[in-house]
């Protein structure tokens, strides 16, 4: 059976580090960076990229339109 693989792209400077994407993600793909962006926020990033299924829950929940989602069948 084909497996769905996904990947997110985070626009780092637009992120405000609210963590809503992280709790919206059903697979635990996202974590908050220890580093901060230009505005001083600990931005979201795909800490566990292999877990991403491209469901776009993070992007739907994102308050700032930061996340783009890609997915494909492998």
């Amino acid at each position: 059976m084909a497996k769905i693989r996904g990947s997110i792209v985070v626009n780092v400077e637009r992120c405000k580090g609210c963590e809503v994407c992280m709790v919206s993600c059903p697979t635990g793909t996202i974590a908050m960076a220890k580093e901060v962006n230009g505005k001083g926020y600990n931005y979201a990033f795909p800490a566990n990229p292999d877990l991403c299924i491209g469901c776009a829950s993070c992007a739907m929940g994102c308050l700032d339109g930061v996340i783009a989602v890609y997915k494909t069948k492998i």
């Binding site: 693989r5 792209v9 400077e13 962006n37 292999d50 491209g54 989602v69 890609y70």
Partner: peptide, 21 residues
């Protein structure tokens, strides 16, 4: 624009599932 991507090979225009308008 500073971006962080998960898996680069998947990030292709034809695979785009969602992006802000």
């Amino acid at each position: 624009m500073f971006e962080i991507a998960g898996i680069r090979e998947i990030v292709k225009p034809e695979n785009l599932a969602y992006r802000k308008s």
